[in-house]
């Protein structure tokens, strides 16, 4: 009985962690390369979810088409933010870009609510019943969410560590001037990085929206846990961000029999603080960073 309870709690935490891992990876990519915490990430999530839902309905209810529309839309939105705003803050104190990103977050949210209102929306997906797998109660849609998240993360890692683009990206992150003198166009590399970060962010928003409901504030509310995951994993380290998200997700759920449901969020942040006291550079050490 007790084992079954904890197994289910851990599984629920795993799914929550897998959803938060996506914006956490995007945050850490941007932080690693551009050097600022991008507070517009949450609202790009929201925009991706709205775009995907609209796309799904336009495409005769195909959720795959919706996911593609949503990811592309959020990738383009992130690219526009880079080209129109963040590009001009390179080499300046990171506070400038942070404040600009908060402004973009508000602008995105206000634009969405102006045209779409405050009413909640849902992805029209048929509901499925859970099945038993040993002690676990598993809802099939959660498995799809997990698979999508894992697939996206694998793709990002392949891009970063296998392709020439990823190598150039890491070179630019490490030393922009040296990279330029080696003939790498930092502008093109950064554009590619923003597209990737935006697509991953939007996908996180879509999965969050599929699991819950789409509201104008959903992304903003998810921003803090994503920040915590990024910090726990070591800033600039994509693998660390994923480990951070899963650790926080699972620990929060496992703590509920002891601290109750209202304090589990506090547990997530307590773990972050504790980990930083023990390992100030995050779960993974500096050498494993993007740069």
């Amino acid at each position: 009985m007790d084992f079954a309870l904890f197994a289910n709690l851990a599984f629920n935490g795993l799914i929550e962690g897998a959803v938060i891992a996506l914006p956490a990876v995007a945050l850490t990519l941007v932080f690693g390369v551009m050097g600022f915490p991008n507070a517009s990430t949450g609202d790009v999530m929201t925009a991706g979810a709205y775009a995907a839902q609209t796309g799904q309905i336009a495409m005769a209810g195909s959720i795959v088409a919706g996911v593609i529309v949503g990811s592309v839309a959020s990738a383009l939105l992130a690219l526009v933010f880079y080209l129109c705003v963040f590009r001009f803050f390179q080499g300046r104190p990171s506070m400038y870009a942070l404040v600009a990103s908060i402004g973009l977050a508000f602008a995105t949210r206000s634009t969405l609510t102006f045209f779409l209102g405050y009413d909640q929306r849902v992805f029209p997906i048929p509901l499925t019943r859970a099945f038993s797998f040993g002690p676990l109660r598993i809802v099939p849609s959660d498995l799809y969410i997990l698979a999508t998240s894992v697939g996206a993360i694998v793709l990002v890692f392949l891009l970063l560590y296998v392709t020439p683009l990823g190598r150039r990206m890491r070179a630019v992150a490490d030393n922009p001037d040296l990279a330029r003198s080696c003939g790498i166009s930092s502008h093109r590399v950064l554009s590619a990085m923003w597209l990737i970060a935006g697509a991953v962010t939007g996908l996180g928003g879509i999965l969050f929206g599929i699991k819950t409901v789409i509201t104008p504030l959903m992304g903003w509310e998810a921003l803090l846990p994503a920040f915590a995951a990024m910090i726990l994993g070591g800033i600039g380290n994509p693998a660390g961000a994923i480990a951070g998200a899963l650790t926080i997700g699972i620990a929060q759920e496992l703590s509920t029999p002891f601290v109750g449901f209202t304090y589990k969020i506090g547990v997530g942040f307590a773990i972050m603080v504790l980990a930083l006291v023990l390992r100030p550079s995050g779960l993974f050490n500096l050498s494993a960073r993007v740069r």
Binding site: V19, K211, A222, F261, T262
Partner: peptide, 20 residues
């Protein structure tokens, strides 16, 4: 009796507690 937090990605753990 369960009190739950707003804006969570899931309420499965809360529901499983109540349903048990």
């Amino acid at each position: 009796e369960v009190v739950y937090e707003p804006n969570r990605a899931s309420y499965r753990s809360e529901l499983q507690r109540v349903m048990s």
